[in-house]
Write a protein that binds this DNA or RNA. Structure first.
Lengths: 278, 278
DNA sequence: CGAAAGGTTGACAATGCTCAACAACTGTGG
DNA sequence: CCACAGTTGTTGAGCATTGTCAACCTTTCG
C-alpha cells in the first residue's frame, strides 16, 4: 500500500465559498449571509491513489466531492481489503462516521479528486442553529442507509449476473443524476474493486462482463461501458430486487418500463428468497 | 400472509412516561420537565406475527422496543421475503425511514412485543429545540449504519460457517448488552429467518448449527443456543472481519482474546478478500 | 521499449443450493 | 389427555455457480 505514504495531504487552504457548486451542503455552511462562517470549509485535492483519511483516524470533518471519485474501504491486518462504497461528485464522504469518534473506513481517491472539507465542529455548531442543515444531514444519512440496504439485499439474494447488472444500473443512475450519459460511461474503478464491492472475485466480474457483451446487452471496452439494452438489463436486475434504490444525488429517476425479458440468462439458479406462507 | 390482516393494531393509548425504561430516547421526549410533551409517545402492543408498519406506509412515527423482538423485512411482488434486520429491546425501529416519507420495509413482531411509539412530528419538533435529542438520533442512525456495514462485509466475504458464527456472536453481544447471559440464550427467529438475514438457505443454517454442535463449539436445542467455546467461535468469526461491530445497545464489549483456533473447519475456501499491493 | 498493472479466459474443485424425505415440536380440538 | 395437523427443523444426494489457480493478453507509463 504505497499510497498510504501519501495520505493526509494538506488542503490548499483556499476557502471555496465562491467556486463551490455543492448547493445542498454549502447552502448551510458557506452561503450563510454574514461573518462567522469563514474558513469553515476548504478545498482538498487528492491525486489518484491518495487517501483522504484512514480507518481509526479521529473524525475531524466531512467531505463533499466536487470532482472525482472516491472509494471507501476496510482492511484486514493481513492486507486484504473490501470496498464498502463508491462516492461521486455531490456525495458526502465520511457520513457513516458522523456520530463516531473514529472513521470506520479508509477513503481513497480513484482519480484526481477535489473535495470540500467541512469541519465537524463547525458543522455541528451550524447544524445546531440551523434545522435546515441538520435536516440535510439526516437526508444524506438516510440516503446512505437505503443504499446500504439495497446492497445488503443484493449480496444476500442475487447471482453474479444480477449483481453486475444491478451495479451497472446504479452507476448509470448516478451518472444520469449528475447530467451525464446513462447509456455510456467510464468506470473509474478496476474489476477487482467492483468485485470487492458486489461480493465477487475479479474473474467472475470479468466473465460476466464478457457474457453480457456476448448477449449484446452491453459493450465493454476497457473501462468504458455502453448499456445497449437497458430494458433487458433492468429486467435482469429487478427480478430479485424489491425496495427502490435511491440514487446518491437524491434525484428521483422516473421509473422505466418493467419489461420482462426472459430467456436471457444462460444459467441461473432459482430465486434464493424464501417463500412465506403462500 | 395472514398476519397482514392484523396489522396496524391500535395502540392502547396510554402514555408511557411513567413506566418507560428507555432512558436514551424517553429522555428527550417524555422526561421533558413541563407541559407540552404530553401524548408524544404511547405504548403499542403487538402479538407474535403482527405487523408494526408496512413497506410504503407513510412514516408517522419511530418505535422503541420495550420488550420483545421485531424483524424488518422486504418482499417481492411474488411473496418472497428477505429479513433486513432484527431488533431487540432498546432498539429503535423505523430509523432507516427517518428522513423519508414512506417506510422502506415491513416490521413484524417475532414474539409478543411492547413498544413506545414516538410520533415523527413531535420528535422532529422536540429535536429542533434539543440538540441532545438530535444527537441521540444521529448516534442511533450512525450505529445502524455501522451494523449495516458489518453485514455488508459479512455477506461479501464470509463462508456459511463464518456467517452463522458471526451471527451468533452478534446475538450474544446483544444479550450481554441487555444484561442477559451471552453464553446461553433463546433465539426468537426461525432458521429460515436467520438464513434470510445472513444470506443462506435454511438448510445450510441448519447444517451449520449441527456441524458447530458436532465440533463441540455450541449446543443446540431447538432455538436455545449455548456457546460452549466462545474463543474458538470468535477466532472463526474474526478471520475475515475487520471493522468492529458496534452492538445495538451502544455498549462497548471488552475485546476478548483473539485466540487462533485453527483446524476446526472441515472444509473452508481461502479468503475471498482481494489482496492489495503486498 | 520494457515492466508492471490490469484484464481475459480456461480447467477444475467445492461451497452452498435444490429437491426430497423424514423427524420433532406446537397447538388445537375432540 | 390424546390425537392429529401444521409448522419447523434435520439430514441426505446430486448438481452448478462461483472461487481458485494459472496462463496469457492488453494497456499504461516511466
Amino acid at each position: 500500500m504505497t499510497q498510504l505514504d501519501e495520505c493526509h495531504l494538506p488542503c490548499d487552504g483556499m476557502p471555496c465559498s465562491a467556486g463551490c457548486q455543492l448547493d445542498r451542503f454549502c447552502l448551510g455552511v458557506a452561503r450563510r449571509p454574514a461573518g462567522g462562517a469563514q474558513g469553515i470549509h476548504r478545498t482538498v485535492r487528492l491525486r489518484k491513489g491518495q487517501c483522504l483519511y484512514l480507518l481509526g483516524d479521529p473524525v475531524t470533518s466531512l467531505y463533499a466531492i466536487r470532482v472525482g471519485t472516491v472509494k471507501t474501504h476496510v482492511t484486514t491486518e493481513d492486507g486484504r481489503t473490501q470496498v464498502v462504497g463508491f462516492h461521486f461528485p455531490g456525495d458526502l464522504v465520511g457520513l457513516d462516521s458522523l456520530a463516531h469518534p473514529h472513521y470506520a473506513s479508509y477513503a481513497t481517491a480513484l482519480e484526481d479528486t477535489k473535495l470540500c472539507m467541512l469541519g465537524m465542529d463547525a458543522l455541528r455548531a451550524a447544524a445546531a442553529g440551523m434545522p435546515e442543515l441538520a435536516n440535510q444531514l439526516f437526508l444524506a444519512l438516510g440516503g446512505q442507509a437505503r443504499r446500504s440496504r439495497a446492497l445488503q439485499t443484493m449480496l444476500a439474494l442475487m447471482t453474479a449476473e444480477e449483481r453486475l447488472v444491478t451495479f451497472l444500473l446504479w452507476m448509470a443512475e448516478g451518472f444520469a443524476a449528475r447530467g451525464f450519459s446513462s447509456s455510456e460511461f467510464v468506470l473509474r474503478m478496476s474489476r477487482e474493486e467492483i468485485g470487492s464491492y458486489i461480493g465477487l472475485t475479479l474473474e467472475t466480474v470479468s466473465r460476466q462482463f464478457s457474457r453480457l457483451a456476448d448477449c449484446g446487452l452491453i459493450r465493454v471496452r476497457h473501462r468504458t461501458i455502453a448499456l445497449l439494452d437497458k430494458l433487458a438489463l433492468q429486467a435482469i436486475a429487478e427480478r430479485p430486487m424489491i425496495s427502490a434504490h435511491t440514487p446518491a444525488c437524491d434525484v428521483q429517476v422516473p421509473g422505466a418500463a418493467r419489461t420482462i425479458a426472459a430467456g436471457l440468462h444462460p444459467a441461473r439458479p432459482a430465486a434464493r428468497l424464501y417463500r412465506s406462507n403462500d
